[in-house]
Amino acid sequence: MSTKLYSYLFFFFLLSSCSTHKVSKPSSALKPTFNVVEDSLNLVDVSRKRSVPVALYMPKSDKKIKHQKVVIFSHGYYQNRGGSNKAYSYITEKLATEGYFVASIQHELPTDDLIPTSGVPQIVRRPFWERGAENIHFVINELKKTNPDLDFKHTILIGHSNGGDMSILFAHKYPDLVDKVISLDNRRMPFPRVNHPKLYTLRSSDQVADEGVLPTSEEQVKYGITIIKLKNTIHNDMDNNANTAQRKEINDYILKFLE
Rank of each mutant, 00 (worst) to 15 (best):
236 N>D: 09
85 N>S: 08
11 F>K: 07
184 L>E: 09
250 I>P: 09
102 V>R: 05
206 D>T: 13
59 P>I: 11
37 V>A: 13
240 N>F: 05
208 V>W: 09
112 D>L: 02
205 S>E: 15
103 A>Q: 03
32 P>G: 11
159 G>L: 07
24 S>N: 03
176 D>S: 12
163 G>Y: 11
176 D>H: 12
255 L>S: 02
106 Q>F: 10
70 V>P: 05
167 S>F: 03
34 F>N: 03
125 R>V: 14
189 M>F: 04
95 L>V: 07
93 E>A: 11
171 A>Y: 10
157 L>Y: 09
22 K>L: 14
209 A>Q: 10
220 Q>S: 10
248 K>M: 11
66 K>T: 12
201 T>P: 03
256 K>L: 06
232 N>T: 12
252 D>T: 14
77 Y>Q: 01
99 G>C: 09
211 E>M: 12
240 N>C: 06
15 L>I: 05
56 L>E: 07
107 H>Q: 10
183 S>Y: 00
244 T>C: 07
170 F>A: 06
80 N>H: 10
62 D>Y: 09
67 H>Y: 14
127 P>Q: 07
237 D>Y: 15
205 S>N: 15
35 N>V: 11
78 Y>P: 05
43 L>G: 09
14 L>G: 06
224 G>A: 07
57 Y>L: 15
9 L>P: 06
65 I>Y: 10
61 S>V: 01
151 D>V: 03
34 F>T: 01
166 M>S: 03
88 Y>T: 10
